[in-house]
């Protein structure tokens, strides 16, 4: 078990390094003079020259990549080209908002998706199952930015149930979190459903029923626990990538989160900030994979003994 985790850890590090490499090359391939981004469009040639020297913009890309990686190894993500704020600081300041939004949404969609998935699997092909299927498909067909706008308009602006356009406390996150939950619940309801259907056909579920276990016990104790394994994997990945920034919803609700930071830095061509947000999100995703691996052993003891 320990060896497996260590191997996985080693591979995660390689993946991250590769991600850093790929992103750096891509970001630095963007045309447009970064010096102009920093100094503004009216800057004189001398100032531009100075900035070029200061940020080593004329060095070969590979050399700059080397410097960047050394800097990273020292735990320094650099400073924003636009605001000169430390990138690590900018990300950490915004992280609580994104984290609160994501955790609130996760609770909402899991609480809704698991019972829906289990019940639709139990009453397969009933009208309830078919209706849920259609609703779930609608949920995963909604564009986030559009749904966010519509809900904001109807519930916050027209009906006044939620505050519009600014962010003070946890309560203000309810509508954005609900929006995110609506977008995710369909996919998870189907995921739980598909896995439950498979598990319910298995012999040990039949054995549990034959033994006289109650229906609730069969569904939630015997079947669900096994059906949850692929769900947990997906959940880990999704939560991690959401923690790395909830792009559209943060944008529409004007929340000071990482997603907004990422969009702004991309539009501003703020290279260190882009690198920072990408690497932060990539680290979370890779880390989540690792944690999910750990959790497997707890959910399914067979995996632990098998390795």
């Amino acid at each position: 078990m320990l060896t497996r985790l260590l191997t996985r850890f080693w591979w995660s590090a390689v993946t991250l390094l590769g991600t850093a490499f790929l992103t750096f090359l891509l970001v630095n391939a963007v045309p447009g003079d970064v010096a102009r981004v920093i100094a503004g469009s009216k800057a004189s040639a001398e100032v531009l020259q100075e900035i070029h020297l200061k940020y080593h913009l004329d060095d070969p890309v590979l050399q700059r990549l080397g410097f960047y990686l050394i800097q990273l190894a020292h735990g320094d993500l650099g400073h924003s080209y636009v605001t000169d704020q430390s990138v690590a600081e900018a990300i950490l300041i915004r992280f609580p908002t994104t984290a609160a939004l994501t955790s609130l949404a996760v609770v909402m969609w899991v609480a809704l998706a698991v019972p829906l998935g289990v019940l639709t699997a139990r009453f397969r092909s009933s009208w309830f199952d078919r209706t849920t299927l259609v609703v779930a498909t609608v949920s995963l067909s909604l564009p986030a930015f559009w749904l966010a706008r519509i809900l904001q308009y109807c519930l916050a602006y027209k009906l006044g149930w939620f505050p519009v356009g600014f962010f003070r406390s946890f309560v203000d996150l309810l509508l954005p979190a609900a929006t995110l939950a609506i977008l995710m619940v369909g996919y998870y309801a189907r995921l739980v459903h598909t896995n439950m259907v498979e598990v319910l056909d298995s012999l040990y579920v039949r054995a549990a029923r034959a033994k006289g276990a109650s229906e609730t016990r069969v569904l939630f104790k015997h079947a669900l626990r096994n059906a949850l394994i692929p769900v947990v994997t997906m959940l880990g990945m999704d939560v991690a990538s959401l923690l790395g920034g909830v792009l559209f919803i943060e944008n529409v609700f004007a929340l000071p989160g990482i997603g907004n930071l990422a969009v702004q830095s991309v539009l501003n061509l703020d290279v260190p900030m882009i690198m920072g947000t990408v690497l932060f999100s990539a680290t979370l995703v890779v880390g989540a994979n690792w944690v999910v691996d750990l959790l497997y052993g707890w959910i399914d003891p067979r995996i632990k003994s098998a390795s």
Binding site: G18, S241, G245, T277, A282, V285
Partner: peptide, 10 residues
């Protein structure tokens, strides 16, 4: 996997 970790918008 590397491609999966980079946000698509970037």
């Amino acid at each position: 996997e590397m491609n999966l970790t980079i946000p698509s918008i970037l």
